[in-house]
């Protein structure tokens, strides 16, 4: 890579880090000000709703298989999701539902 490309890479890396870091510093100051004013330490309401909505959006996006035209991927996705929810319902844990979900997805993907 030539120098200009390296500079672009560093710029992208620093900008990405700043986008992750600066909002934290802003929020920590906001919380500190609230604490100093003896107010309840809370975050803006819109933010508290936005976070689960972001996770839901990530889920929606991740549901689409790499080849959306392939029916077997959709069937496997549906079975994988059902298996994940069923195992979560009984275990209320993190690892097992994901493991069984992936396993079910894989089995259906191979069989269908």
């Amino acid at each position: 890579m030539d120098n200009s490309l390296w500079i672009t890479l560093i710029l992208c890396a620093v900008a990405t880090l700043m986008m992750r870091m600066l909002p934290l510093i802003w929020m920590q100051r906001h919380l500190a000000r609230r604490k100093a004013a003896q107010a309840v330490e809370d975050m803006p309401t819109w933010l508290s709703v936005f976070a689960p909505a972001m996770i839901a959006a990530m889920f929606g996006v991740s549901l689409i298989p790499s080849d959306p035209a392939a029916l077997d991927s959709w069937v496997a996705t549906a079975v994988g999701c059902i298996a994940t929810v069923v195992v979560w319902f009984f275990t209320r844990s993190l690892g097992w539902p994901v493991f069984i979900g992936v396993l079910s997805y894989g089995v259906v993907f191979v069989l269908v």
Partner: peptide, 8 residues
């Protein structure tokens, strides 16, 4: 598929 399963 681990990712949608985890998000779920």
């Amino acid at each position: 598929f681990a990712l949608p399963a985890l998000f779920l």
